[in-house]
Design a protein around this nucleic acid. Sequence first.
DNA 1: CGGCATCCTTGGAGATACTG
DNA 2: CAGTATCTCCAAGGATGCCG
Lengths: 118, 118
Amino acid sequence: MTTQPPTADTDEDTEVERLNADVCNVVGSVEKIGSKWKLIVLNDLRDGEKRFNELKRSTGASSYTLSRVLDDLEEEGFLENRKEFESPVASYYALTEKGSTLCPVFDALDEWGENWLE
Amino acid sequence: MTTQPPTADTDEDTEVERLNADVCNVVGSVEKIGSKWKLIVLNDLRDGEKRFNELKRSTGASSYTLSRVLDDLEEEGFLENRKEFESPVASYYALTEKGSTLCPVFDALDEWGENWLE
DNA sequence: CGGCATCCTTGGAGATACTG
DNA sequence: CAGTATCTCCAAGGATGCCG
C-alpha cells in the first residue's frame, strides 16, 4: 500500500448516505461534491486551468489539503492533471467534461449568494 | 519553451483578494448552507412542514444534532418553528420564504445527481 | 515548483440519559 | 413529544519540513 492519510476510509457511512439518497439525490450530490474545498477548487477552475501553487494561493488551502482535494477530484473524474517536466516542473489542473457539468450547480449557488449573502 | 512557464501573477496581494471575491458567492453560499445536515433538513422540508421526531426519523440525525441544525437554520431565517402547547407538545418546522429560495440550488443538485451519481 | 509525510488541534457528530 | 446535557471519537484541516 501507499499512504493512508485521512482519505483512507472504509465507507460505513454509505448506509446513511443511501438512506438519504433514497429520499433525494440532493444529499447524494452534496456528499459527493459538497465539501468546502472541493467546491472552492472546482469553482476556481471554471476560469480555466491553473497550477498547483496558483490554486494554493487563490483558494487559501494548505498544500496538504489542496493536494488531497486535487487527488480526490481527479480520481473522481472532475478534473485532469497535465504535467510539464521542463525546467521547474509545472502542473496544470483543469475541469473535465464531468467537472463542467457542475456549472449549473455553481450558477445556482452563485445566484443565490448574490441575493442572499451578507 | 525551455525556461519558466507562464507565471501569470505579479503581485499576490490584490490577486488573492480578487480571487476571494470571485469565489465568494459560491463558497459563501456553501459555507452558509452547504453543511451536510443543513441540506438534508432543508431539502426534507420541501415537502411541507414536519415535526421534530419526524425529521429525526427521515433524516437520521441524532436529536442533538438535529436540534442544533434546526436552531441554526431558524436563526438564519431559513425555516420557522410553530409550537402547539397542547396535550403532548407539538413542534412544526417549515421553510420560510428565504428557505424556499434555495430550491433552485436543490434542483440543480438534484438534476446533477440524477445524471452523475453512481 | 509540486506535493507527500508528520504532528497537532478542532469541532462535528454519534450515543446515551435525562427533563418539561 | 421535544428537546438538552455530557462524554467521547474521529476526520478535516492547518503548520511545517523535506524531497525530487
